[in-house]
Computed example of a mutant assay.
Amino acid sequence: MEITLAEEITLLCLEDESGAARQRQSVGWAVAGGLLVELVLAERIAVSGKHLELTSTEPTGDALLDARLAALETWLRGRRRRVTDWLTREHSRAVTATLESLTARGLVVEERHKVLGLFPVRRYPEADGTVERALRARLDSVVLGDAEPDERTAALVALIHSAKLHRLAFPGRRPAELRARTGEIAAGEWAAAAVRAAIRDVQVAMLAATAASAAAVS
């Protein structure tokens, strides 16, 4: 089963048994960024520097991506708007949409609980671990081994690197051991120049958005 980059990132963040999400804030930025990268790869949007541009409204055939594409079309309304503004708007919504998509695919199940009998909480324990196991094996072969990444795997590594999700993607390994390799892959010659440039722009926007969010909280 082929799933989106955003769904891959979300799978990495979920505890298999409890279904609790780890590093939810950082994951939110990466998931929102992953959806943008998917739309770049599908040639539905272009990212140039700080701005987004809608290039096609033709459906991709993926319900998760098509919903975000429709939301982007409404939000842009023919204007050039900043990538950071979209990420800030979307980082929470993107995770919710992605969890719903994983549930619909049968990879996780939604469980609803109440903390102290009052506060509703949702958890997403694993229902089918085959996709996540294949995902982790693919990442290990590229980052811990010497396999050459394909376009999608390299894009995923770039998002993991930008959002500092090394602990989720490579449990048991120290992030400091991995950053040089993930950075090398993120900067590599693994896709057409225009795609690499767009993904780098998304990475920069993610870093700017997370920094602005942290400053606002402090």
Rank of each mutant, 00 (worst) to 15 (best):
E43K: 14
A67M: 05
D62V: 15
A155E: 05
L144Q: 05
T10P: 03
R82W: 03
L39W: 11
T210A: 13
E100K: 12
L11V: 04
A180P: 00
R179P: 00
H51Q: 14
H91P: 01
E58A: 15
Y124T: 01
A209D: 02
E15W: 00
R122A: 10
L5T: 08
E58F: 00
L69S: 05
L87D: 05
G49R: 08
E73C: 04
I185C: 05
R112Q: 13
L39S: 06
V31M: 12
H113K: 09
L76R: 08
A137D: 13
L72Y: 02
A193I: 09
R122N: 08
R136I: 01
E38T: 10
T55M: 09
A63T: 12
A127S: 14
A21F: 07
L54N: 08
V204N: 07
P171G: 06
S48A: 14
E151V: 11
E111S: 06
D85K: 01
G129A: 15
V27K: 00
V121H: 07
L36N: 11
E15Y: 01
V195Y: 02
D128E: 14
A104M: 02
L165M: 11
L207K: 12
E15T: 12
A180F: 02
A104T: 04
E8C: 10
V109H: 03
S92K: 10
V217W: 09
R112I: 12
F119Y: 14
L41N: 03
A134Q: 12
L65F: 04
A97N: 04
Q23V: 02
V40K: 08
A197R: 14
G145L: 04
F119V: 13
G145V: 04
T130V: 11
A212V: 10
T88Q: 11
V121D: 01
A134W: 03
V31C: 14
V40P: 07
L107I: 12
A127M: 12
S101G: 05
S48F: 00
S92D: 10
G33A: 03
G145P: 07
A158G: 15
K50Q: 13
S218V: 14
C13E: 06
A6W: 09
D140L: 00
L156V: 01
A197F: 00
A97R: 11
D16A: 15
K164A: 15
P149L: 06
V27M: 10
E53S: 11
A147K: 13
L69G: 07
A205I: 06
P149M: 08
A197S: 13
L54P: 05
A127V: 02
P171E: 07
L118W: 10
R81V: 12
V202R: 04
P149W: 10
T84W: 00
G34D: 07
A154Y: 09
C13T: 14
T210H: 11
D150K: 08
A97C: 02
W86Q: 11
L65I: 01
L39G: 09
R68F: 12
L207W: 00
E43A: 13
E100Q: 12
G129I: 01
L54D: 09
T98S: 04
E177C: 00
E53M: 08
S141G: 14
F170W: 04
S56M: 06
G188W: 03
A180M: 02
G117C: 06
E177T: 07
A194G: 05
G19N: 08
V204P: 00
L178D: 03
E126I: 09
H161L: 02
Q23K: 12
E58G: 01
E111R: 15
D16F: 01
D140K: 09
E177K: 01
